[in-house]
Design a protein around this nucleic acid. Structure first.
Lengths: 330, 330
DNA sequence: CTGTTAGCGCGTTCAC
DNA sequence: GTGAACGCGCTAACAG
């Protein structure tokens, strides 16, 4: 077995040049004669040399690392965004370091410390609870999805959740529903609250009673919230969930109660995660363009790191009609 | 705004000691007088000093980083394992660097290069296609789930997929099913093939015809495979899918065809991902103890890094009966 | 074009 | 106990 990690000095010796020249060849920092280039390349090949990012980082002061702070690797919403973002970054010199905050502020702060220590050159926030205080003095660009960040080097990608929620609620009302429960959550960020606002606005405008229960943005909470909803409002005909996972949980509750979807109760979700199209019945939901979001974040990241101002992408939240809503007699 | 990253020298100056002493205090490398300890700690506090992992790594030759190579951040199976593993590592000095291989061998090899360059001290493989060749000369411990790795520092966590698949097939047969299709996949690793083997064995022993179609371990492939299954074997009464996502896809196909689950067709999955319990009807499936797997990998990682031999955890694949299988007249 | 020199920020000898 | 000096692997500035 060859030595684990040959150094630039060994390559230089083998190629009969100086370490600096090896560096120049590898980085294209300056012109080097044909023969030496060849010699270096050959030595690199033979030794299986790969420069140490650690040493490079130390020497240049650059890390080419970008930090990505997300709630949870297990999330069917943020996971795919992270996936798309990672893919988008692949063609760049930048490498993502993803750290989960596990839905806890202290963990998020720890994760932030970790990323800071690793000298990430930019930070992407995916649905965290971090606010300006912790981020203000960071000195690096901060991008965010689903939450607003402020500052000179800040950029956030926010879709109009309130409008989308308003329209989803209207969609139900247009199909004759009047007793509509919204399953919101205290967890989550601004976007969840905006959905609640959109729902309230639609209900208020229609002169209808707002019925709100709270889950935790996961299936289990959706189940419990649905139970509470029907305990408090037995005559409910439609459920509008703050996200799809919540809708799935509610769906199971309805199933267990013998309530059919959509015959007895209509159901609308939010996010359109991969599995929503495969629910029974396929879930009508507000689609967040997950892949496009990841790509947009990746592009914005590149722009910001190049010192440019990212152009805001045209991303819309749109209701995708599937089969979980039915028209009721008015 | 304070300077972005104070160095150990600045701390030393402020505390009126030498950099070496600061290092000693922070690492507990040697005894230091009370007062200097206090002075150093205070200076650290005031400056908000945090040692640079880069510099530390360079100086010590250690990175405290462990590489985690997984197929895809968006996977509802590997995502949660990664989450549990990350959580388990939190109390250790080691930090995970997760890199997706995007189901492609070249990408996996690139990812491997990346991790190698970053001097990870160990590697965890989560369902990759990497084989011994690429890993042999790595010189660091390699742990794997769902695939076998060889070598002195290798450790793999393999559950008995063949047995579990055998039993799942038997389970269907015990309920009167004889025309059982297995939806396998050419994608994926050894575990998927073992499930196929288990299915075949059960069918052969019962003198039944093996009916195998292939998906891609995701919903879409499951849908198409189910379509193919019923085209080729119209009288099929039960589907055993190689993983839950495949089962979801198949489920949608059945729904669209007006075939009820479980009244017309029984369905069994594999993995028991979070959403399986929330399917309609709740999916009967072979449970992989996802969280325990993540934890076991984390523990094994710690053991290996401490130079110990990990004790193989007692993890079993067990069929969880829910509501997607029914008894048919024999 | 190319080799030599000087750090990047830290841990670690080795003397004091 | 403690500080000065050296080296980790690499790039950048400076001479030639």
């Amino acid at each position: 077995m060859t030595k684990a990690h040959p150094t630039i000095a060994e390559v230089a010796r083998r190629a009969g040049v100086s370490p600096a020249t090896v560096s120049r060849v590898l980085n294209g920092t300056a012109r080097v004669s044909q023969e030496k280039v060849r010699a270096v390349l050959q030595a690199v090949e033979e030794l299986g040399y790969a420069p140490s990012p650690l040493a490079q980082g130390l020497a240049t002061g650059r890390s080419y690392a970008v930090g990505i702070l997300l709630s949870d690797f297990a999330s069917p919403f943020f996971g795919p965004i992270l996936e798309a973002l990672t893919l988008e970054l692949e063609a760049t010199p930048y490498r993502p370091i993803a750290v989960p905050g596990h839905w806890s502020l202290v963990r998020e702060l720890e994760a932030l410390e970790f990323l800071k220590a690793h000298r990430v050159e930019a930070l992407v926030l995916l649905g965290t609870a971090l606010d300006g205080e912790a981020l203000g003095e960071l000195g690096i660009p901060v991008l965010a999805f689903g939450q607003r960040v402020e500052g000179p080097k800040a950029w956030s990608l926010c879709l109009d959740n309130q409008k989308a929620a308003y329209e989803a609620t209207r969609y139900l009302m247009d199909r004759g529903h009047t007793r509509i429960v919204h399953v919101s959550s205290h967890r989550g960020g601004m976007d969840v609250r905006e959905r609640l606002l959109g729902y309230r606005k639609a209900m208020r405008e229609a002169g209808l009673e707002a019925r709100v229960v709270y889950g935790d943005l996961e299936e289990e909470g959706g189940y419990r919230a649905a139970a509470e909803a029907f305990r408090r409002y037995p005559d409910t005909t439609a459920l509008f969930a703050a996200n799809d996972q919540t809708a799935f949980g509610a769906r199971l509750y309805l199933y267990e109660q013998g309530l059919r979807v959509p015959e007895d109760v209509s159901l609308v979700g939010f996010d359109d995660i991969a599995l929503s199209a495969y629910q029974i019945p396929p879930l009508t939901t507000v689609r967040q363009p997950i892949q496009e979001i990841g790509i947009a974040l990746g592009r914005a990241l590149r722009a910001v790191l190049a010192g440019e101002v990212p152009t805001p992408p045209r991303l819309e939240l749109t209701l995708v009609e599937r089969a979980s809503v039915r028209e009721v007699g008015a």
